[in-house]
Amino acid sequence: MWIYEKKLEYPVKIKNPNPKLAQVIISQLGGPDGEIGASMRYLHQRYSSPYGEVTGILTDVGTEELAHLEMVAAIIHQLTRNLTEDEVKGTPFATYFVDHTTGVYPVAASGVPFDMKYVGVKGDIITDLNEDLAADAAIV
């Protein structure tokens, strides 16, 4: 089970709102290579892992990805802090603003909401680890 600790894994300190940047960074939250996908992938693959070490890694990395998604959400929150409709008009963020204003909603930069289709869980640990290599290599 999960306990929440009231701190970010690493501080996020953004002094100046920037809707253009928010539009790009939102993909790290709700996009195909984002943190929601990463945490869901690892946390769900661990149920069919036959090796304790692998289950441990999938649990611990999956949990850490939840901490990451909180940091990305903090970045979006601070980048869009107090923005008005006029300030986002003409920026790529304007479309997101229509449906979510300055709320933090998990979408990709394209506007597609997070989709569990980005995640593969096949019940075979070797297959699943290959999915992990493919997913994380996209970032590396």
Partner: peptide, 10 residues
């Protein structure tokens, strides 16, 4: 402040 707010990180 909650962890995602600027005040919690200054």
């Amino acid at each position: 402040p909650w962890p995602w707010e600027l005040d919690a990180n200054s």
